[in-house]
Structure formats: structure tokens, C-alpha cells
Nucleic acid binder design. Structure first.
Length: 210
DNA sequence: ACATTAAGTGATT
DNA sequence: AATCACTTAATGT
């Protein structure tokens, strides 16, 4: 575990902090599709990702889902910060996109380390910043209903987190993630295929160029 | 061969 | 962009 820590966070944190993380963190592995955190659930720990990717989504009144963003290795979930300052309840759902290794750290430590380690402070601030930028991006495309751009971004992100340009998903599932209908996705995908950006197969989308 | 499920299309709002 | 209605293609039994 120390080795994993060194490799992914060694360049970020000082020795003393790495020691503390090692002492208090709990290693965890989640399989694809597993729900790490659900809406309304109490947050007791914050995740540090070693490998894999987590899909962060929100749900509306009717139970429909919408993807906000992905978090990958070297990331943490920005939601944890706002939660431990505010209600303590999660406002999002986190599902493993692929098999993921992560470390759970009790949230009490988070605040202590903020005062104690400048590298930790920097890390939290940075991830808050990148998360906010990502959110702005999704809000942009959302506000103007540019489905084609959203789909493009979705495919790009998905190919990236999977480390594979073969995406395994039905049009139905994609539509669900983007909160739209299957027909729309099929049409857009078909168009993208004509443009030579992707190749379509049943249950599979091969990304050629983005 | 038949049923089921995924994907493609035209027309309409 | 969403929905309907319908067709076609791929897969499972």
C-alpha cells in the first residue's frame, strides 16, 4: 500500500503526510457498476483514487440520472468537502465506471491536515478548482442543449477513463446517462459515424478520432 | 424458426 | 431535441 501511495501521491505530499495517510487510510477495491455513495447517504470518508474511474451523477425528482463528471486516479471527490462543512449528506451518486482501487480516509482527518500540511491544502484547493471548471463545462453544454457536444465529450471522457477506444454500452445506456432519449443518441452517433469519428457495432462504439 | 433486444428512420410536434 | 410508430438487424433459446 505504501508503494501505491508513493507512486500516485508521492510527488504531491511530504513524507510525514504520507505516513499519516498510510496509518489512517483503508484500502478498498470496487467492481464495475458498484455504487460507492448514494444521494442522501452520510459521508464518513473521502476517497483517494489509485486507479480506475468513478462516475459522478445527480438525480432529478423523477429518478432520472444525469452525468456530472468522472473522477480518475490522483483525484478525490470534491463533494466530500462541501458535505463535511454543510449537511454531511451526499447530494450525488458515485458509481464505479471500471474496476477501481481507492483509499478511504476519515473526514475528520481532512480538516486537521488542512492546517497541518500545505501540500494537502494545495491538493484540496486544486481539485476543488478542477472540479468547478469541469462543472462549468457541463453547465455550458447543458444550458444550450447542444446534445452533439455533450455526446462528444461523453465519449471522449469514457474512452479516457477506460483507457480504451472501444466503449461497451448500448445507445439506451448512453441516452440514460445524458438524460435524453435513445433515438436522439442513435441519430447523433450515426451522424458521427458518417463523419468518420466513430465506428458503430452492436453494444459497442469504437472511437476513431475526437 | 421464433422471441427478444438493440439500432435505424421518417414524420410530427 | 423529443416522441411516436414502425422497420431492420443481431442474438439468444
Amino acid at each position: 500500500m505504501r508503494e501505491l501511495l508513493e507512486r500516485h501521491y508521492g510527488y504531491l505530499f511530504e513524507e510525514a503526510l504520507l505516513d499519516e495517510i498510510e496509518a489512517v487510510g483503508v484500502c478498498k477495491e470496487v467492481k464495475q457498476g458498484e455504487v460507492l455513495m448514494d444521494i442522501g447517504q452520510n459521508i464518513t470518508a473521502m476517497p483517494l483514487l489509485f486507479s480506475g474511474a468513478i462516475k459522478i451523477m445527480r438525480e432529478d425528482d423523477d429518478g432520472d440520472e444525469l452525468i456530472l463528471y468522472f473522477i480518475e486516479k490522483g483525484d478525490t471527490c470534491a463533494m466530500t468537502f462541501s458535505c463535511c462543512m454543510g449537511t454531511g449528506k451526499s447530494e450525488i451518486r458515485a458509481v464505479a465506471e471500471v474496476e477501481t482501487q481507492l483509499l478511504m480516509i476519515p473526514i475528520e482527518k481532512m480538516e486537521v491536515w488542512l492546517k497541518k500540511y500545505s501540500s494537502w491544502r494545495q491538493f484540496i484547493l486544486d481539485s476543488y478548482h478542477t472540479r468547478l471548471s469541469e462543472l462549468m463545462e457541463t453547465v455550458d453544454t447543458l444550458a444550450f442543449m447542444k446534445m452533439d457536444e455533450r455526446l462528444l465529450k461523453y465519449l471522449r471522457d469514457k474512452a479516457m477513463v477506460t483507457q480504451n477506444d472501444l466503449i461497451h454500452a448500448t445507445h439506451q445506456e448512453v441516452a440514460h446517462d445524458l438524460h435524453t432519449s435513445r433515438v436522439v443518441i442513435s441519430r447523433l452517433l450515426k451522424q458521427m459515424e458518417k463523419e468518420g469519428k466513430i465506428k458503430l457495432h452492436r453494444n459497442q462504439i469504437k472511437v476513431l478520432a475526437l
